[in-house]
């Protein structure tokens, strides 16, 4: 089975990239083995207890919880960039595997195709 890697690197809500990246990953899970990698401000998509009422945007962060049901179990997050934002794994809405920069290179190398969001 082909390995698709979805890289999420944009903050949620400021642009539609985050929401459509999640949609694409859910769709992809029906056809291929999908892996998610959250880097940079993309990590903020995973923040627990988001409240978007003030911004008028849809709070799609609850949807991350269904990734497991869709068979997307490999969700990685840059450890250094998580720490750089003053965050820890307990701040996130789902369980992710923290990875070092060297491990990120391995995740990239394992993918047959990479979709950037």
């Amino acid at each position: 089975m082909k390995q698709l890697l979805f890289i999420h690197s944009k903050a949620p809500h400021g642009s539609i990239n985050a929401q459509e990246g999640l949609d694409a990953m859910l769709m992809g899970s029906a056809f291929a083995e999908c892996t998610g990698l959250f880097i940079g401000d993309g990590i903020l998509q995973l923040l627990d207890r988001q409240d978007t009422t003030g911004s008028g945007q849809k709070n799609f962060s609850k949807t991350f919880a269904v990734l497991g049901d869709y068979g997307v179990d490999n969700i990685y997050c840059s450890q250094s960039q998580l720490s750089a934002r003053g965050l820890g794994l307990a701040d996130l809405v789902i369980k992710v595997k923290p990875v070092s920069d060297a491990e990120i290179r391995q995740v990239l190398a394992r993918a047959d195709s990479i979709l950037n969001f």
Binding site: L4, A24, M27, G28, A30, A32, S113, L115, N116
Partner: peptide, 21 residues
């Protein structure tokens, strides 16, 4: 058409090249 067409491109093309983002 649906998003499945993008996924299909990722699976069946040797290279999927993205422009803009």
């Amino acid at each position: 058409s649906g998003l499945g067409q993008l996924i299909d491109a990722g699976i069946n093309a040797d290279r999927l090249v993205t422009f803009g983002n």
